[in-house]
Design a binder for these strands. Structure first.
Lengths: 212, 212
DNA sequence: CGCTGTGTTGATAAGCTTCAAGAGTGGTGG
DNA sequence: CCACCACTCTTGAAGCTTATCAACACAGCG
C-alpha cells in the first residue's frame, strides 16, 4: 500500500507562481497520481521539490508497519532537504499532485538559501514533538486544524487533502479517535463538516485555546 | 523551577577538544550551575553553543506547565540554531555544565557549516516524532537508551546526566512510567542499574529490537 | 444501482496516568 | 565519620484516555 511506484507524466514547463530557488535548475512540473512515491528511504538524496498543486506526505515506517507522518506539504511549500546523503524518509503524493523538481549543483552553493528552510522545518518538527509528547487527542486535532487553516491563508473554510488515516498517522492517533474527535468538535460547534474533506471553523478561539 | 536565572562564572579560555566552527569568534567557556538558563523562548537568537562538559536540555512549555524536552545535548555537541530571529525554545544546563559560546558574524557566511548541523537536527527531530507518535513506553525507553549509548561511544555502561522527570518529558511519559519500564528492563535482564544515573546494557539486541 | 473504499459509531480492553505511600540516595552539618 | 534531611526514585491501586475489534453508514464511481 505504501511506497508504490507509478510512472510519472511530465507536464509542459510553465512559470511557477511560487518563489523559486536562485541558481537551481528548475525542471518541468512532474505529475504524480494519488499514492505514488516521490522518493524512498535509503535513496540517494539530490534534488529539492516544490509542490505546485496537490499535497505530499513525508513519513517513516516501523518494521511492523506502524507509520508516522512527520510532515504534510501543501502547494507552494518546498521539501526534500530532510536528508544528508540519503533520504531518511518516504515522500508520497496524497492526491493528484504536481511537483517542480530543482536540481541543485552543489549543496554548499545553495546553503544560504537552504538554511532558512531547514531551520523552519526544524522548528516545525520540534513544535510537533510537543503536540505528540504532551497533548491529548482533542488538543492534537485542534492544533492540526489551526495549523492547516494558517497554511491556507487563515480562512474559515479549510480543505483537508488527506484521509483520516493520514491525519491519525500524523497526530499519533488511530483513525477512530480522529473521527470521534471531529464529532466532538462538531457537537461543541467548534467546527462544521461541509464534506468529508472540507471543514469550516466556527470557533477559532476554542481551537486556539485547545491547541496551545 | 524552570528557566531560573543565575549569574554565570567565566572559566579561563582553553582550547576546545571538540571541532570548532571556522570563522566564528570562540568565547571563553562559561560555567552554568545545575538548572540554570542558557537562553529562553522569545529571546533574540545570536550565538551558537557547544557543550564542553555536562549536559543541556532544550524544551518547550504549554501554558499549564506541561513540558516537552525536544533534545538533550551532551559534551561535544553544538546547539542553539533551532531559531530564526528569536528562540522558540528554552535551553538549560542539566547538571554543572561548561559551554563555549560562538558569536557568529553573519548567519549567511556560516551557512555552509550550519546547514549540515541543522539537517542532522532535523533528521533527529523527525526520528523522534516516530518514537513519540507510534511507540509504546518500553520501546521509547529502549530507543532512548540505545541513542544515549551510541552518543557515549557505544559503550555498555552509560551515564544518564538527567533525572527521570527529564527522561519522561523527553519521551512523553510520566516519571512513574519511566521508572516502571526501567524495572521491567531490569527484570528481563536487558539492563542493570549500577546507580540511579548509571546503567549497564546487558542485552543490546533486545533493546535494539524494541527501539525499532 | 450496486460495489468498494472511507468514515462513523459502539463495546470492550489495554496501557498509561494519577494519586498515594514508602524506599533509596546523596549531600550536609554536627 | 556518621546521622539526618531533602530530594529523587520506586512501587501499588484505581481511574481515565485511547486502542482494538466489530458493525454499520455513507460517498464516490464504474
Amino acid at each position: 500500500m505504501y511506497a508504490q511506484q507509478i510512472a510519472k507524466i511530465e507536464l509542459p514547463s510553465q512559470p511557477s507562481p511560487f518563489a523559486l530557488l536562485d541558481g537551481a535548475m528548475a525542471q518541468p512540473v512532474s505529475f504524480f497520481p494519488a499514492g505514488t512515491e516521490i522518493y524512498a528511504q535509503g535513496e540517494k538524496a539530490g534534488p529539492l521539490y516544490q509542490v505546485e498543486f496537490g499535497a505530499v506526505r513525508v513519513y517513516r515506517l516501523l518494521a511492523d508497519g506502524r507509520r508516522q507522518i512527520s510532515a504534510f506539504h501543501l502547494a507552494g511549500e518546498t521539501f526534500g532537504f530532510e536528508a544528508d546523503a540519503t533520504h531518511h524518509f518516504f515522500a508520497e503524493a496524497i492526491g493528484a499532485t504536481g511537483i517542480r523538481v530543482f536540481r541543485i549543483a552543489s549543496t554548499a552553493d545553495m546553503s544560504s538559501q537552504l538554511l532558512p528552510l531547514a531551520l523552519k522545518g526544524l522548528i516545525r518538527a520540534q513544535e510537533h514533538l510537543l503536540v505528540l509528547g504532551r497533548q491529548n487527542a482533542i488538543e492534537r486535532v485542534a492544533a492540526f486544524l489551526v495549523d492547516m487553516a494558517g497554511r491556507q491563508g487563515g480562512l474559515r473554510q479549510i480543505e483537508l487533502p488527506m484521509s483520516r488515516l493520514d491525519i491519525g498517522d500524523y497526530l499519533g492517533l488511530t483513525i477512530e479517535t480522529v473521527s470521534r474527535v471531529f464529532t466532538r468538535l462538531k457537537d461543541k460547534s467548534a467546527i462544521r463538516l461541509l464534506g468529508l474533506r472540507s471543514i469550516e471553523i466556527l470557533k477559532q478561539n476554542m481551537l486556539l485555546e485547545m491547541g496551545g
